[in-house]
């Protein structure tokens, strides 16, 4: 099946700039996948295939790379991907309570997405912010030193943003 997606012209410029930074084309794969993620919103099979064709890398290799790492935004992820750090320093300061609170508020367990597609909840390994435990990453942003009230507030704010975006 022919690809029906492609980078917008601005992204294509960034891709071409990336190629100038490395001695091999393949070295630009990880950053190019970031461009795809941001341009297309997620990395599903069509997006991976597009990158593979663009970079002349076998699709299976691209799939292998995307699935080796945990931080690419895979197909089916909610608009807001809430990733709660669950490794030791955060666990010692209540990360499990943060997860339970989010589960309670959103009605989803770790690994699940709300039916409306707004939220995905994940438990993830150390995010390198142990001094501000418990903490989570929502899309690109860190939310640190969380109390359960902070969690409630964050969810309300994100919910408003998601619903606002939908109506507007």
């Amino acid at each position: 099946m022919a690809n029906t997606i492609s980078f917008c012209s601005e992204t294509m410029k960034q891709y071409e700039w990336l190629l100038t930074r490395y001695p091999t084309r393949r070295a630009a794969l990880l950053p190019t996948l970031r461009l795809a993620e941001s341009d297309f919103g997620e990395l599903g099979v069509p997006e991976m295939r597009y990158v593979a064709d663009l970079m002349e890398i076998p699709p299976a290799f691209v799939f292998g790379v995307v699935t080796f790492y945990t931080h690419y935004r895979r197909a089916g992820t909610g608009k807001f991907h809430i990733q709660v750090c669950s490794t030791l320093s955060c666990a010692l300061r209540g990360s499990e309570d943060v997860v339970s609170r989010i589960t309670e508020r959103l009605g989803i367990k770790p690994g699940e997405t709300t039916p409306c597609g707004h939220f995905t909840l994940s438990k993830v390994e150390c995010l390198g912010s142990c001094d501000t435990a418990p903490m989570l990453q929502c899309n690109d942003d860190y939310h640190e030193d969380l109390s359960l009230e902070d969690v409630d507030q964050l969810i309300e704010q994100l919910r408003a943003e998601a619903e606002g975006g939908q109506n507007g």
Binding site: R26, L29, L30, L33, I57, F68, Y72, E125
Partner: peptide, 21 residues
Amino acid sequence: GAGAYICGEETGMLTSLEGDR
């Protein structure tokens, strides 16, 4: 990088920098 503890290991990091797992 893209989320992998092993990429802090120097040869893993170099392999990753080359565009691989």
